[in-house]
Each structure stands twice: as structure tokens, then as C-alpha cells.
């Protein structure tokens, strides 16, 4: 056990099994949220805030940062685990852009997740598979996380 091994997840390894569902969540993404994420992340690509530019490069409208979708989806896992540091491996494929209209609602990303496998009884790690959709279509593929539980 190293000093960096979190012991602080609020979910116990013994209490989960393959198929355990995590509480699903929905994340509204407005244009304002995109601007805010652009500033915080330093990703100022105009496809995320300028619809003229987005259309010029062949998009339907402004799209969300893929990394914002990835970060939002992660919250289903980190909120469940209680300690964001318990998420030790996290990967996604960006399969479809999330179009964000310029209105009060913006886009909605719906995320569900379940335990796909218990990986290691000693390290207390599980693999969680995530599904993220917007308007009923998958926006992330192969979204998987490895979480170290208590």
C-alpha cells in the first residue's frame, strides 16, 4: 500500500457486483457553459463558440468540447465513488459531436454507468462502463473507467 493509494472512496468493493448500476445523471450544456469551459481549459477553438465558423467547417452549429463531455460523464463515476482521486483510469472515444443551440436549454447529455467487471480483489478495482447520449444518440464510445473502491 503506497501513500498515494486512496482509501477514501465511499463505496465498498465488497458491496458492488458486476451489473451494479451507478446513479444516472443529466448534464445541461449551454453556450455559456462552453465559453466558461473554454476559458478554464484554454481551448478556444471557435467551433465551440462561433456558429458562423462552425458552419463554415461543415458542422450543423456550435458543438461542445469533447473534453467537456468527457469531464461531465466522469462525474457520474466520481460522485458515486465520493473521491475523484479514486478514478485511476478513464478513457473515451469521441463518436459524435454534441450540438449546442444558442438558447436557454442548450444541449442535454445523459449519462448512465454500471459496473462491468470486478478487476482485482486486492486492489479493490472495478471497471465501470459508461453510456453518454445527447438527443438519444451516443456521443461517447468505449467509455470505460477503472475505480479503486474502499
Amino acid at each position: 500500500m503506497t501513500a498515494h493509494t486512496p482509501m477514501t472512496a465511499k463505496v465498498a468493493y465488497a458491496d458492488v457486483e458486476k451489473g451494479t448500476e451507478l446513479p444516472p445523471r443529466s448534464f445541461p450544456l449551454t453556450r455559456g457553459a462552453l465559453v466558461r469551459y473554454a476559458g478554464a481549459s484554454g481551448d478556444f477553438n471557435p467551433i465551440h463558440w462561433n456558429e458562423d465558423f462552425a458552419r463554415k467547417v461543415g458542422l450543423e452549429d456550435v458543438i461542445a468540447h469533447g473534453m467537456l463531455t468527457m469531464a461531465s460523464a466522469a462525474r457520474v463515476v466520481t460522485d458515486w465513488a465520493g473521491d475523484p482521486g479514486a478514478l485511476i483510469d478513464y478513457g473515451v472515444r469521441f463518436t459524435r459531436p454534441v450540438v449546442v443551440p444558442n438558447d436557454e436549454q442548450g444541449a442535454l447529455i445523459e449519462v448512465s454507468a454500471k459496473v462491468a467487471a470486478k478487476l482485482d480483489d486486492e486492489a479493490r478495482t472495478v471497471r465501470v462502463d459508461l453510456t453518454a447520449t445527447s438527443k438519444g444518440q451516443k456521443v461517447l464510445g468505449r467509455a470505460q473507467a477503472v475505480v479503486r473502491l474502499a
Partner: peptide, 13 residues
């Protein structure tokens, strides 16, 4: 260029 996949392996936070 578009971003295809992203993965992070955290050895510590």
C-alpha cells in the same frame, strides 16, 4: 485534425 480518443491513467491525482 479531430480528437478521436482520450484516455488518462492516473498514478496519483
Amino acid at each position: 485534425v479531430v480528437h478521436g480518443d482520450q484516455r488518462f491513467v492516473h498514478h496519483r491525482p
